[in-house]
């Protein structure tokens, strides 16, 4: 853990449990003032989400995809982040856990977490159209915000250039 600060014992227990269950598949945990982030291998996403759900993080606030190709330390990957929050548990309500995994940029396929967190449904659809991440097992994976006739590459990928800019 980097940037130690007084961590809520419940949250600490959850992070400890993730460490125990996932083992090597847990790639890193960051807890600081800026963000609480749990990085896992792509194969362990469902497992990690199930643990978070079971221990109190009952909904997601959103799903974010980040195209890492244009970073200074460029990676040929798309980072997928689930922002999980707690409504029913008063002790966990102040925290948002960002569950992240990296997917290969050429074939970004990830299991859908709608079965774990029903609130992820529309956010996953948005990530599908904006970054081209395919969520396996999603009940209705189709366009949400983009027009039906859109035929270019997913627009939030870094190699998409909006017409009239750059």
């Amino acid at each position: 853990m980097s940037g130690e600060q007084s961590v809520n014992p419940k949250l600490a227990a959850i992070l400890e449990r993730l460490k125990q269950v996932l083992g090597d598949k847990l790639k890193g945990v960051t807890v600081d003032k800026k963000i609480i982030k749990v990085e896992v291998a792509s194969g362990a996403l469902v497992e990690a989400a199930a643990i978070l759900k079971e221990m109190g993080f009952d909904h997601v606030k959103g799903v974010t995809g980040v195209d890492l190709i244009a970073l200074k330390q460029s990676e040929n990957a798309i980072e997928l982040i689930y922002h999980a929050g707690a409504y029913l548990d008063n002790d966990l309500a102040p925290y948002v856990v960002n569950l992240a995994t990296k997917l290969p940029r050429d074939k970004p396929v990830s299991p859908s977490l709608v079965k774990v967190w029903p609130s992820a449904e529309y956010h996953e659809r948005e990530t599908y159209e904006m970054l081209g991440v395919v969520f396996e097992g999603h009940p209705k994976l189709k366009r949400l915000l983009l027009p039906e006739w859109w035929s270019d590459i997913p627009p939030l990928r870094k190699d998409y250039r909006p017409p009239g800019r750059e």
Partner: peptide
């Protein structure tokens, strides 16, 4: 409702990624 942002910076003068988590979008479901 609850409005949230996820922001990633790579140290340049522009954000690398800004994710807007809008309350209405979350209520859509």
């Amino acid at each position: 409702g609850e409005m949230a942002y996820y922001i990633r910076s790579d140290g340049s003068d522009k954000p690398y990624r800004v994710r807007i988590l809008a309350p209405s979008f979350r209520n859509l479901i």
